[in-house]
Design a binder for these strands. Sequence first.
DNA 1: CTGGTCACCTGGAAGC
DNA 2: TGCTTCCAGGTGACCA
Length: 270
Amino acid sequence: MPELPEVEVTRIGLLPHLCGRRVSGICVRSPSLRYPLPHDLGARLIGRRLAGIVRRGKYLLFDFEAGKLLVHLGMSGSLRLVRADLPPDKHDHVDLRFGDLALRLRDPRRFGAILWLGQDSGTHSLLRKLGVEPLSDGLTAKVLHEAIRPRRAAIKQVLMDSHVIVGVGNIYASESLFRAGIHPSTPAYRVSRARCARLVDAVKGTLQDALAAGGSSLRDFVGSDGKPGYFQQQYFVYGRADLPCRVCGAPIRSLRQGQRSTFYCPRCQR
DNA sequence: CTGGTCACCTGGAAGC
DNA sequence: TGCTTCCAGGTGACCA
């Protein structure tokens, strides 16, 4: 599920409930996710006050002042707030307890991650080489154009490269290219400056719309089923192979790029 | 450096 | 019904 909008919706949903509260206990039910879980999580966290939650790309950083807890949701992860006495599901791997509330990580595929970063959070290898934040002023046509100029790979794959731009996953890469009218197989270096400008607007617009769709249903975040609404979003092309393009009616096509499926409209995207 | 492929893991849907 | 195969929203490691 989680691309940037879902991660951000999660962050915004958690913040008002947890900020300023202290960890009263932890429960680890699985030895490892993508990486082994820190063995000393309890010692690091219990009694610590959560000062804030920031997002970098698809990483959430829980700021406990003494250090930061990095959480990544992988392909199938979700974070929910539940009553601490709610029995865990099979794939509920970790609880961080804040009094009678528990922040519960569920991740069936276990591609997610929890790491303790200590003080040097900015220099951690997972974060150091990340690209520009798409919703920040740092992403401009000029920046994108220069970043992709040396790249011969398909624009769709470069768009998903987190060392170029963070947070654009498989769904929103297809959606953004549709909005920009760019064919996903176009070699990145051949995307002109003018088309980079369209693409920048498309990426920002796509992510912002998804964010708005998710944010609009955040009311029930606590104790909810963990699906804060972003599934209602209507995609232009993703998952719509053979269906008519919502703009021109031509059948949407799909192809494989780097073992991922891509969807596009052969008439709207050149 | 770059681009291509693989691996990690589980579950749901489709095919036979 | 039951077995097999394919596919899934991420990303780092490894190779040429």
